[in-house]
């Protein structure tokens, strides 16, 4: 297989603007007595991006930056507290129950842990047939079987008939993740949120899953929001990469642009610690101090300034604007 660049088109499938998810913070009993105003976990705090048909957009960032929450909010698996999600011209956030159910046939999700995301007491067949059943998509048993077999085959599980009656624990890790993919594919979605789909898998089987996902995009034009914390993986599979920090996107651009010429100091630091398969000196890296701060106390000004090696006076009080720095390359920093 050659490079995974997809020519892309301007056929916009999803447009997200100002997406916000704020949770009520879980405060202890005592502290809730002392302070009246309950604090908010601003897990996603104003995110804008769009997704085109047949595109793979990677959402990368450290743990706790709000990647998963963003993905789930688009599918309304968690309720956004603000903003807009336009899917194919319609605002998802205004869908009622029945329209939402229909929407979920078009937009699917694959979870990180292929063991936990499959019901241990459901066989392979019922796992994949379930989406068809709850949406009343098949009129006959034969049709259902056909579609299940087709989805399993699409997900790279050859001999689907043979594994129909197996349970998830009777499959290997790679097969389990393929099963999860098949159960998303069976509804023929246009859009899939893939939340760290390979991070629990061994290196030797990762490539197969990634290749499958890219192949499905090539063949069926499925659009992915690919969530990962691994930038080298993001670069490998995606068309564009968005870097998230503390609930906001700080940089977005084509995969090559973000990795090869990062704009934002945070991206630069992340890129500098991407491992390369040879002995290098550790001196060339920018090691940020500490870990992602708590989304309850988001620093004022630029939210990255306490860890930023390039922070200046201005960064402390003034929030940088998220803007198009060069064509199709966005960033939010005062000094770019």
């Amino acid at each position: 297989m050659g490079p995974v660049n997809y020519p892309g088109n301007n056929n916009e499938l999803i447009k997200i603007s100002g997406l916000e998810v704020h949770f009520a913070a879980r405060t202890g009993f005592i502290s809730s007595l002392i302070s009246k105003n309950s604090s908010l976990v601003r897990a996603v705090d104003g995110v804008d991006f769009n997704l085109r048909r047949g595109e793979i957009l990677c959402l990368a960032g450290e743990s706790g930056s709000g990647k998963t929450t963003t993905g789930k909010a688009i599918l309304r698996l968690v309720e956004p507290t603000g903003g807009e999600v336009i899917f194919d011209g319609e605002n998802v956030l205004q869908f009622n129950r029945s329209r939402l159910r229909k929407f979920r046939q078009d937009a699917q999700i694959i979870f990180q842990d292929p063991y936990e995301s499959l019901n241990p007491r459901q066989t392979v067949f019922s796992t994949v047939a379930e989406p068809l059943e709850v949406n009343h998509l098949c009129s006959s048993m034969e049709e259902k079987e056909e579609r299940v077999a087709e989805a399993l085959k699409d997900a790279g599980l050859s001999n689907p008939g043979e594994i129909f009656i197996r349970y998830p624990h009777e499959l290997s890790g790679g097969q389990r993740q393929r099963l999860a993919i098949a159960s998303a594919l069976v509804l023929k979605p246009d859009f899939i949120v893939a939340d760290e789909p390979v991070s629990m898998l061994d290196l030797s089987i990762r490539a197969g899953i990634l290749k499958l996902m890219v192949d499905l995009r090539d063949k069926k034009g499925i659009c992915y929001l690919f969530i990962t914390h691994d930038l080298s993986l993001a670069w490998l599979v995606s068309d564009r990469i968005a870097i998230m920090y503390l609930g906001k996107i700080v940089e977005l651009g084509t995969a090559d642009a973000v990795i090869k010429s990062p704009l934002h100091p945070y991206t630069r630091a992340l890129v500098s610690v991407i491992p390369v398969p040879k002995k290098i000196s550790l001196a060339g890296r920018t090691l940020l101090k500490g870990e992602t701060p708590d989304p309850v106390n988001i620093p004022p000004g630029c939210r990255f300034h306490p860890r930023c090696p390039e922070a200046a006076e201005r960064c402390r009080d003034e929030e940088p604007l998220y803007r198009e720095v060069s064509p199709n390359h966005f960033g939010a920093c005062h000094f770019i």
């Binding site: 936990e116 499959l118 019901n119 241990p120 989406p131 159960s183 998303a184 509804l187």
Partner: peptide, 23 residues
């Protein structure tokens, strides 16, 4: 997560309780 997955494929509360929680 498999309960969340069930929701993501469009299952209603009743379906989830009977097919995912009960077993």
């Amino acid at each position: 997560p498999y309960v969340e997955r069930a929701r993501a494929i469009g299952s209603g509360d009743g379906h989830i309780m009977i097919y995912h929680i009960l077993p």
